[in-house]
Amino acid sequence: MLEIRGLSKSFRSAAGTSVQVLRDINFTVRPGQIAGLVGESGSGKSTVIRCALGLQRPDSGSVSYDGIDVHAARGPQLMRFRREVQPVFQDPYASLNPRMTVERLIDEGLRVHRLLPDAAARRDRVVELLEMVGLDASAMPRHPRAFSGGQRQRIAIARALAIGPRLLICDEPVSALDVSVQAQVINLLQEMQERLNLAILFVAHDLAVVRHICSEVAVLERGVIVESGKSDEVLGTSQYPYTRALLEAVPIADPLEARRRRCARLSVAASPGGNGYE
């Protein structure tokens, strides 16, 4: 369904040199599948997403969605891509237009694509979507600034789900959510996947969440995919040092265990050449 082949991308750095950010990325999302992309901060996850959405042009390689070449599409093909593939961006503050009410933000896609011409039906749909993400109709007339971080993230998800996409491309969609709301949103995404055969490209740094929701996962390290496969295998039993290091740093909700780990870390760091902060 989504095929990323041989994708490479570099940027010009402030010093004027060229820095390669992605190198020969291959990644596939099949219909009805939730595929994860994980990797440390700065490894290139958001850049993959921007290229997959056609927002950034790769130096080489291709992105195709259901037979559409994303970087060459025009006219009706581009329209279909925009209708069937919906993004949820990493930064919910920047991606929601501050001048629009929540109702407008969520029903915009329905109006643009003329999916629900009847205003009352559109309104019902907005309420339904808000409730699915744990908000309610009282949110509709308000602007994004009157919402908390996690509420904005959920407004962005409701907006993406509004027109019934076939593929959702999400960049850290639940990072600002507490465990309870996070569980609700994850259960919602899984339900949509099962019921509507929704496919999801899920970018996140929380490996526990990724293991829970994704059947397949790829690990990105400095712009290169270093490991990929079934998420239970990659995230459960990987012997790859980078993946293990990521797994070992997942915080454990147990104060005694957490303290033991920190003591071990800081004693290593306190040895000569340590990391004292002054």
């Binding site: 009282s138 465990v179 569980a183 293991r211």
Partner: peptide, 29 residues
């Protein structure tokens, strides 16, 4: 108690994450 029960653990896989039923009230409700 509910907050501590809804944590996904990397070392366990559950079918459905436990979440506190219902949603928190808004400042209006």
């Amino acid at each position: 108690q509910g907050l501590l029960g809804a944590i996904p653990r990397i070392d366990q896989k559950r079918e459905q994450l436990q979440s506190i039923p219902g949603a928190p009230p808004t400042p209006f409700t």
